[in-house]
Amino acid sequence: MDVKLHLTVHEARRGTEAFRVVRPARPPEHAALFDDAWWLNAEVDRDAALLMAGLWTLAATSPRTLVHLPLRGPTPPAGSRRLDLVLLHHSLQLAPSRWKELRGRLSPGRPRTVEVSLTEPAEEEYATLHHADDRDHFHQSVHSETLFMTGSARPFRLGAAAFLDVARRGPAYVDPHPDRAYNCRHYCATVRCAPRARDIHVQYREPPAPREGLQP
């Protein structure tokens, strides 16, 4: 499955260092990332899930590019805080504590459209997650109200697959217990992280119904 990503490309310099930062030209309307202390919860509709899958794929295939996703979702639940997201290949060696300074040095940006292919990772890539000696995990930290996900190409591919799964199956999911007193159309997937880090719980959310105009 191919998707087109409409992006804005920025550059930042610090001494002899140069960084390329990409952002969606338009942040997703129905997406949120919450730090719930025990969990990291991402809530997305189909369009946002496809965008996220594309951005995580871009991070896997463009190791010299830092991907920044501003998220302006709904008010976070009590006891939670809303986060932005940064995806970066570990070879960039950018400490999250430097992000605020780097963000302030970004150029105005130029538009660019990139087409990426969303594919399911090979079964053996999933299998290695359970190996005791596997060290190829995401490393994460939260700084300046932003979640930083640092890793190699493989975990980014697996993360993209989680969002693609939610985009494909979430909208058609049917509540298996429709007779309950409340509706619970809960379809989710997981982005796996290092053993001592918190996984990201990716949950499908229907976009809110459009508000009807006032009747005369």
Rank of each mutant, 00 (worst) to 15 (best):
D2W: 06
V3T: 15
V3S: 11
K4I: 11
V9F: 07
R14G: 12
T16C: 00
E17N: 04
E17M: 06
A18K: 10
P24E: 01
P24V: 02
R26G: 10
A32H: 14
A37T: 14
W38V: 13
R46H: 02
A48V: 03
G54Q: 07
G54F: 08
T57P: 01
A59D: 05
T61V: 14
P63C: 10
P63M: 05
R64T: 14
L66H: 00
P70N: 01
P76G: 04
G79S: 08
R82G: 15
D84I: 04
L87M: 04
H89N: 12
A95T: 09
P96M: 09
L102I: 15
R103M: 03
S107H: 05
T113G: 00
E115Y: 03
T119M: 10
P121R: 04
E123D: 14
D136M: 07
F138E: 12
V142M: 09
V142H: 05
G151V: 07
F156Y: 04
L158G: 00
F163C: 09
F163P: 03
D165E: 14
V166F: 05
A167T: 12
H177I: 03
D179L: 09
Y187A: 05
D199W: 06
I200K: 07
R205E: 05
P208I: 01
R211E: 15
E212N: 12
E212A: 15
G213R: 14
Q215F: 13
